[in-house]
Design a protein around this nucleic acid. Structure first.
Lengths: 119, 119
DNA sequence: TTGACAGTTGAACAACTATTCAACTATAAT
DNA sequence: ATTATAGTTGAATAGTTGTTCAACTGTCAA
């Protein structure tokens, strides 16, 4: 097994620990997906939308009025939330109603709030 | 109570829902902090660092070798994690050891993984 | 005190992202 | 058909962010 080229200017200090940690780490791709998921939650507009939809199904205009933003801005963010499978929608005439498609979100929010309230 | 200037080009569709949701929403500032917290988790380098530190205390060189990145890049990310109160450190001679300062992280990661594994 | 290595820091750059704007589609009502 | 409103979309812009690079500090050993 040839050593990969190492780009860091380090002597390895604790090879045993590095090896042990490396073994127990999740797949590269899974960690990538995970951080992508948190990236979606990491914007206050999207966080507000998700919080609102957890309370009630809402249409784009409702959300725009609630957050005092344009329909366009809301719609762009809803598209990202849709891509991340966090919201679903149904059409009723001219109106499109959005709602949460996942019930993990609230519990993730709660745990997050615990953290930021702690300190 | 004068109506605030509304920047969206909407008729309100469901005023009752908007009002109800508005009442139950957390403070603007709290939601901002919350999304800032998720923003920190929303980068794969930081997610890897946190995951590694959950396994074991590690020094900067260890992390650099593990993730095949420069000490500088790691150090920059550790600074952000420090600012977010997610990691703490202790110095021992020339070596700085980092470890998790919060035990919510693992459970947030687990819940996040549930979500991305679901679909 | 000099050299070596661990780690930090600030500036710079490239890549990314949230919002705006204008133009568009879809549906309903007259 | 025409008009009006809900919503979507692509391009553009301004702001943000991750990594690199080079210079720096801190600690130890000779």
């Amino acid at each position: 097994m040839p050593k990969n080229e190492v780009i860091c200017d380090c002597e390895v200090i604790h090879e045993d620990i590095v090896e042990k940690v490396k073994k127990n780490m999740p797949d590269e791709s899974e960690l990538y997906d995970l951080s992508d998921f948190f990236k979606v939650l990491g914007d206050s507009t999207r966080a507000k939308i998700l919080w609102a939809l957890d309370e009630s199904e809402m249409c784009v205009c409702d959300l725009a009025v609630l957050l005092n933003m344009t329909k366009s801005a809301i719609s762009h963010q809803l598209r990202l939330l849709k891509q991340a499978n966090l919201v679903k929608y149904r059409r009723e005439g001219k109106v499109v109603y959005y709602s949460l498609s996942d019930d993990h979100i609230k519990s993730i929010f709660e745990t997050g709030l615990e953290h930021i309230r702690e300190k």
